[in-house]
């Protein structure tokens, strides 16, 4: 298993380089001139002085061929240097280090919340298939599914402002154990919860119709035992495969949630950087986000055999 994990990690390095290469190329050929971007914001006049711009470009090594600059960038990244933001001039590494924990903590908490809420609801809905309870659960899941995070967020925020007494409106970031985390966490979890409820429900219904469960039922085992012994394990597998999708949903959701609730995370940072064509930051955020998705994929792959021994044999 360790060799497998190592092999996956080795395969993962060229993937990351490819992603960075693509974004770097887009920045290099498509985006605005970084020197102009820097100087437009700070000192007066320089951005419109071609001679000085050219001198600065030359000094900063921006006239070298694309591949040299890209190699240089990768070299710096390997040494932990992501460069400086074009807009604020601050170190990208430090900016990311401040923002990443917010998004990662929120994302992990959303996954935990999803698992705690969605899997039991899905199982209950399946066990009570076609009853009012089933419809209620499924209906709520669909409702959550149908509301985009960018609609749910602002509406809940404003409702909260109107309902809550003065001075107690949660806004901003105070860490995971702060009351202000609740609303963004909920909005962020809406889509994953809807997804997992439906996934779990159909997986359980499927397992219930299989022979071994019918046999167990015929033998008179109580439903609760059947669920824990025979059902939970097979349904966790398809649910787990959705985790990759959920990671992407979370990253996308984080963009909207962080914008609406004013959280200083990666999503907000990314959007700001994109609006300002601040490519050093965009590159770093893309890198971090890709790494997160890939790590979660790797964890899923590693967890597979634990849940489904047959999958381990096949490898």
């Amino acid at each position: 298993m360790l060799t497998y994990a190592l092999k996956r990690l080795l395969l993962w390095i060229p993937s990351v380089v490819l992603v960075l290469l693509a974004v770097y190329a887009l920045a290099f050929y498509g985006a605005g001139d970084p020197i102009k971007l820097i100087f437009l914001r700070e000192p007066g006049g320089v951005a419109f002085d071609p001679v000085r711009i050219e001198a600065i470009r030359e000094a900063a090594g921006l006239n070298r061929p694309f591949i040299v600059q890209f190699g240089n960038y990768i070299w710096n990244v390997l040494h932990g240097d992501f460069g400086n933001s074009l807009t604020s001039g601050r170190s990208v590494g430090r900016t990311i280090a401040a923002a990443a924990p917010v998004s990662i903590q929120l994302g992990l908490l959303a996954i935990v919340l999803t698992a705690i809420v969605a899997i039991p609801l899905g199982v209950i809905a399946a066990l009570r298939q076609n009853t009012a309870l089933d419809y209620a659960i499924l209906g709520s899941a669909l409702f959550l599914w149908a509301i985009p995070a960018y609609v749910a967020g602002p509406i809940l925020m404003v409702l909260l402002i109107i309902i809550l007494p003065g001075g107690s409106v949660p806004y901003g970031w105070g860490g995971l154990f702060d009351i202000r985390v609740i609303l963004p966490l909920l909005v962020l979890s809406f889509h994953p919860i809807a997804l997992i409820v439906r996934q779990t429900r159909s997986a359980v219904i499927e397992v219930l119709s299989e022979d071994f469960v019918r046999t167990a039922k015929a033998k008179g085992l109580p439903a609760r035992k059947i669920v824990t012994r025979h059902i939970l394990r097979p349904i966790l597998t398809p649910v787990l495969t959705q985790l990759g999708l959920i990671m992407i949903t979370l990253v996308n959701g984080a963009v909207f949630v962080e914008l609406v609730f004013g959280l200083p995370g990666l999503g907000r940072l990314a959007i700001q950087a994109l609006l300002n064509s601040d490519y050093p930051i965009i590159l770093a955020v893309t890198l971090i986000a890709s790494v997160l998705v890939m790590i979660s994929n790797l964890l899923i792959d590693l967890a597979y055999p634990l849940l489904d021994p047959r999958a381990a044999e096949r490898r």
Binding site: S15, N252, T286
Partner: peptide
């Protein structure tokens, strides 16, 4: 796999703003 590992929202915005 590479394509699936890049968050699609970021990818689309990067391409859009630069191309």
């Amino acid at each position: 796999d590479v394509f699936m590992s890049v968050p699609n929202l970021l990818l689309v915005i990067v391409i859009n703003t630069s191309l």
